[in-house]
Design a binder for these strands. Structure first.
Lengths: 205, 205
DNA sequence: ATTTTAATTAATCAAACGTTTAAAAATTTA
DNA sequence: TAAATTTTTAAACGTTTGATTAATTAAAAT
């Protein structure tokens, strides 16, 4: 970090990232962002042509650097059990650092922000289906039942992401502080793989 | 339904429900709602004192009538296996009728809309922990492992709700039309209970 | 029939929004 | 140092927002 490019552009990006994730695109105003970045609104449109443009630059970067690398673990070349534990662990740790990100992404997916969808698809376009192939191999060996990779992926994603999506409700309803919530999601690092593997290893009904 | 109270007030409520869920509170304007209800903006503030007020009335009603009754199934007096299948089935069917509702609820949970949190808590305040007691009884019998009800509830909720939360991404990434998405969530009616029960019936590691 | 109340309309309000301008200050280049 | 370029500032732009007004029509009550 010798570069120390702590210029206004980066400060605006940081403020935008924070406020977009916190309040959503529509509710975070240019004036909010400028004030949070300790500058004025004209500079926001000087460095980025528009609020829309700023949003896309910030999001594309953030998404590509945090979520995608973890999501790709399911296509890594690892033994099934190791892979599932690693996926849940890495995803959980990533989310602990950026807990509001999933809700932000899904929220902005509604309506006219289809360019955001485009970004997500382009990022993950060159995706292989090696996870399905792995499940097929294991099933052929008799190690697990036959299973649809998309269903397994969805279940894993669900169980890891959802507690963060519903964090506010969860903490409020069960009087959790930040520490208790962390304990809750940490203990899921064991439960989620166990649940997934128990299903896969079970004979089909 | 003999009442046929198809007055302006109800038309506004319907329009508001539709637009709030579709675009969120901040992006659905009073003019949108008025136009969609085939009236003018003054009547929106005539029947409801403000947009904020309209939002709360509509949401409280919608939430209490659709989500809560299904969520309470986990505290019904039913055998464990029957209960889990019933919960997943009813929740899925409810969501198929109102697929954007979960994302709407979670989105509005961010930031200053804390009154929404209050509504949710008041609605589910008188909740028993009979599900935990049931799990304890089953564990004492040796039928299942010891399990934290909150973790099981969270996993069930996760796996049912998340596909709807991420519906747009899911459909886009895997080129699903509405029919394919319905097939996808329908087949989860079997997978989710199987996964949950496989975990519960597994000896602890 | 007349009064009173409820419902509806068109027009307008101030505030906040994203964006732009034109001029000043700071920095880089020659 | 002088010229050219980049960065920053304060002020304003035209729209859109939620909300309100005052006048008009419809309905209910007496």
């Amino acid at each position: 970090m010798a570069k120390a490019q702590s210029n206004t552009e980066e400060k605006i990006k940081d403020a935008a990232r924070k406020l977009f994730v916190e309040k959503g695109f529509g509710n975070a105003t240019t004036r909010d962002i400028a004030e949070c970045a300790d500058t004025n609104i004209a500079l926001v449109n000087y460095y980025f042509r528009s609020k829309e443009n700023l949003f896309q630059e910030v999001f594309q970067e953030s998404f590509a650097h945090t979520f995608l690398p973890v999501a790709r673990i399911l296509n890594d070349d690892l033994p099934l059990e190791v892979k599932i534990y690693k996926f849940v662990d890495h995803m959980t740790e990533m989310l602990k650092r950026d807990p509001m990100m999933p809700l932000f992404v899904l929220s902005e997916m509604r309506g006219e922000h289809s360019q955001m969808c485009r970004i997500m698809l382009e990022s993950g376009a060159l995706e292989s289906n090696s996870f399905q192939e792995q499940l097929n191999r294991e099933a052929a060996k008799g190690a697990i039942r036959a299973a649809d990779a998309l269903q397994v992926e969805t279940s894993l994603m669900s169980m890891v992401l959802f507690p963060f999506l519903s964090m506010n409700i969860l903490k409020m309803k069960h009087q959790m502080d930040d520490e208790a919530f962390t304990r809750f999601v940490d203990s899921r690092k064991k439960i989620i793989p166990e649940m997934t593997l128990a299903y896969l290893r079970q004979r089909e009904g």
